[in-house]
Amino acid sequence: MELEIRHLRVICAIAESGSLTRAAKTLRLSQPGLTAQLRRIETMLGGALFERASQGVRPTAFGELVLVRARAVLPAIDDLVFGLRAPAQHRTLRIGTVNAPLLAGLVTWLDAAHPEARVTTVTRGASTRLVELVEATQLELAVVGDCPGFELAARPSVVLQPVATEPVFAMMAAGHPLATRPEVTLKELAAEDWIVPPPDDDRIREYWATVFHGAGLAMRVRHEVEGPVLLDLVLAGRGVSLCQATSRQYPGLVIRPIADNPLWYRHLLAWHRDGPLTAEASEIVERARSAYNEASRRNDAYPAWLARGAS
């Protein structure tokens, strides 16, 4: 395990909140998960960073030293990514995103609506980090997402506006036995090997596991990978995975609804209350919904699912 920027953010969040419980809520992690992560960080750095206090935790002497370095490093990293840019001849609109199907349509509209501006995009694996960047005015807009019971925490200076909520579908190789079904069940999926992304601050993995546990089932995870590697393993028939209902259809890939729709994902827009896009926020939300509706036709399964619901 190597020290990463996200580990420094974890240490700072614990110090700022003075409590593992409060820090876990801010980071959208479970407290046991945060505790385990802190122990791994401490092992890697070679010493305890926090000690128990009367109402939470406080940094040790070694922890204070690490915090001084972390607080010096993190702003520099953010400046490197968002602040140190060549002098712009035009206004810049910085858009952040997770894996959002509506992004391309929204950016296309923003480009047309703001010909005087330079629209740029960055991606992050977890929505929490994007909301933090909106709060710090390092992004003008972000396309984020969350799941039932694991909603993004409210921040006074950030508006979180829902755009669309969609079911989570299963995906598998075309030759998989479940691919012949019009829909699959959680029980059938639980009997398969799983290919899933590693746990992250977005807590989507925790949400999936919670839903399966509530049904008396468990996900038999065999491969923890993400991005193109995850898709390659699914296409190779090495297991099943989950995807947004708006996921793009690829040759050899089959996307199927899950019976009774037990899993959901919500798309939201985030902007600063005092940001430059506030005045046109209502129109941006409508354009985002239009872009989402266009993206809902990227595979055959979702339009069919929507048609059944409308009939």
Rank of each mutant, 00 (worst) to 15 (best):
R238E: 12
T35G: 02
R289G: 14
V10G: 00
V134P: 10
G33Y: 05
P228H: 08
E140L: 00
H7Y: 10
S127L: 09
G214M: 10
Y292T: 02
R129H: 14
H114I: 00
L268P: 02
G125E: 11
T97E: 12
T121Q: 05
R308K: 14
A295E: 01
V122H: 05
G33W: 09
V240N: 10
A215E: 15
L231M: 15
I195N: 10
H213S: 15
F169L: 07
R220K: 14
E280S: 09
G63E: 01
V229E: 15
L3E: 05
G63Q: 02
P101Q: 09
L130H: 04
W264T: 08
I204G: 06
T123D: 11
P228I: 06
W194T: 13
A281E: 01
L231N: 12
Y292G: 00
S54D: 14
S290D: 14
D78Q: 09
E294L: 12
V57F: 02
W208K: 07
K25A: 13
A307L: 11
T123W: 07
A48G: 07
W271V: 02
Y302M: 05
A15S: 11
E286D: 14
R6L: 13
A236D: 15
G214E: 14
A190C: 07
S19L: 02
V234I: 15
G252W: 06
A291M: 11
R118Q: 13
R256K: 15
E188V: 11
I204V: 15
A100T: 12
A170H: 12
K25G: 01
S19N: 00
G47L: 01
N99C: 11
L45T: 00
E294T: 15
A36G: 02
G227W: 09
I5E: 11
H176L: 08
G46N: 10
K187G: 08
I11A: 03
A281H: 09
R155T: 07
A61E: 14
Q244H: 10
A295T: 09
L74I: 12
W194S: 12
P75Q: 08
T123C: 09
Q31K: 07
V81F: 10
L45H: 01
A304R: 13
V66Y: 06
R94F: 02
Q161E: 15
R22M: 05
A72C: 06
A245R: 02
W271E: 05
V229H: 15
I5S: 04
S17R: 12
G63M: 04
G145E: 11
E16C: 00
A179D: 02
E206I: 04
V131I: 13
L277N: 06
A70F: 10
G175K: 05
T165D: 14
V168T: 14
G275L: 00
Q249T: 08
V98M: 05
T278C: 01
L34N: 01
H176N: 06
Q249P: 06
T185V: 07
G252M: 08
T180F: 08
Y207Q: 09
E16P: 01
N293S: 14
V57H: 04
V240K: 10
R22A: 10
A113F: 01
L29G: 00
A307I: 04
P251W: 08
D202V: 12
Y265L: 13
R256N: 08
